[in-house]
């Protein structure tokens, strides 16, 4: 088990190395350090000297991969690639192009993201599975058909409309929750109601349908029919057998997502003014702050890799039959 995990972790590191090289190539091809300097220095009265100074201060004046002027190890370490990319592995994100410490910003901004994402995730999971079980219970009835059509209808609506509509109806028409904003501590609760609600609602269609199809597939298996033939009640069959056996496909889809909850929801956060990592990323894209975008890409990949490893672990927990050599 532990040697298997070790192998997975090493593989994860390899993946991260690939991500690192790829993003570095992508970002330095998109925008030269000169572009970055000019974007950050503003438009008024910018001189070439100021650009040079900026680059020097941020360490963008170094050569990209190999520093010919240095000797020994510094030939490699005194480069943009090493200082801006390799050091990400130590979670040293450095300073944003604006000068703020990225690591600090990430550590403060991930909590609001989590405060929205985690409840939305948990409530969502409960709601979706409940609905899906209901549909599976009444499968092939008018209730089921109607439910599936309703799900398809819901998943055909763009997520933008959920947000715009939700804000308009709940915040403006009915004055039930603040339209946007955030606060620390318990005060945060009233700001979370709306984004969580919208987050759950926008997922109902797709997720319910997905879980339903998993349950239906499970129900049609032989052991379920055997259990039913033995006279075990439908509900017991559903909860004891179907739900448990459906855990593997559910976990495969769900566990990977859990670490990514930290990354926040891009659009929800900027619409609701939640100071999380999602809005951080959007801002970075809009301001072309590539230091932040690079850091977020790396962070996202790390969380994904963690999610993959967690998925492996969760299999063994759910199903003792699964063993890893």
């Amino acid at each position: 088990m532990s040697s298997y995990l070790l192998r997975r972790v090493l593989y994860g590191l390899l993946v991260l190395a690939g991500v690192n090289v790829l993003t570095f190539a992508l970002f330095f091809f998109v925008n030269s350090p000169d572009d970055m300097a000019r974007a950050q220095l503003g438009a008024k009265r910018v001189t070439p000297e100021a650009v040079e100074k900026w680059k020097q201060q941020r360490g963008y004046d170094k050569p990209l991969f190999l520093n010919e002027k240095m000797s020994g190890i510094e030939r490699v370490t005194e480069t943009v690639f090493y200082t801006k990319s390799v050091r990400l592995f130590a979670f040293d994100f450095g300073a944003s192009d604006q000068g703020r410490n990225i690591g600090y910003d990430i550590s403060t901004r991930m909590w609001p993201s989590l405060a929205v994402q985690l409840p939305a995730f948990v409530i969502g999971l409960l709601v979706y599975i409940t609905f899906a079980l209901l549909l599976a219970l009444f499968r092939a009835s008018a209730f089921d058909v109607g439910g599936v059509v309703f799900c398809v209808l819901l998943m055909s609506i763009s997520s933008l409309f959920y947000i715009i509509g939700g804000q308009y109806v709940f915040g403006k028409l009915w004055s039930l929750a603040p339209i946007s904003g955030y606060d620390g501590g318990f005060e945060a609760l009233k700001f979370l109601v709306l984004p969580v609600l919208i987050g759950v609602a926008s997922g109902i269609g797709g997720s319910t349908r997905w879980y339903r199809s998993i349950f239906i597939e499970e129900i049609s298996k032989d052991y379920v029919r055997t259990a039913r033939a033995k006279g075990i009640g439908e509900l017991r069959v559903l909860f004891r057998h179907v739900l448990q056996n459906a855990m593997i496909p559910i976990l495969t889809g769900v566990v990977v997502v859990i670490p990514l909850l930290f990354m926040g929801a891009l659009i929800t956060e900027s619409f609701f003014g939640i100071p999380g990592l999602g809005s951080y990323t959007i801002d970075a894209i809009n301001q072309q702050d590539f230091a932040i975008v690079r850091a977020m890409v790396f962070l996202g990949s790390v969380l994904y890799v963690i999610g993959l490893i967690l998925t492996d672990i969760s299999y063994t927990l759910v199903d003792p039959r699964v063993r890893f050599s």
Binding site: Q167, Y168, G171, K172, P178, S180, G181, S270, G273, S279
Partner: peptide, 18 residues
């Protein structure tokens, strides 16, 4: 001063007196 990036929430909150 609160951060308000989107115009719609901003405008609606103004109308609500916030």
């Amino acid at each position: 001063f609160s951060l308000e990036k989107e115009q719609i929430p901003y405008w609606n909150k103004f109308l609500q007196g916030y």
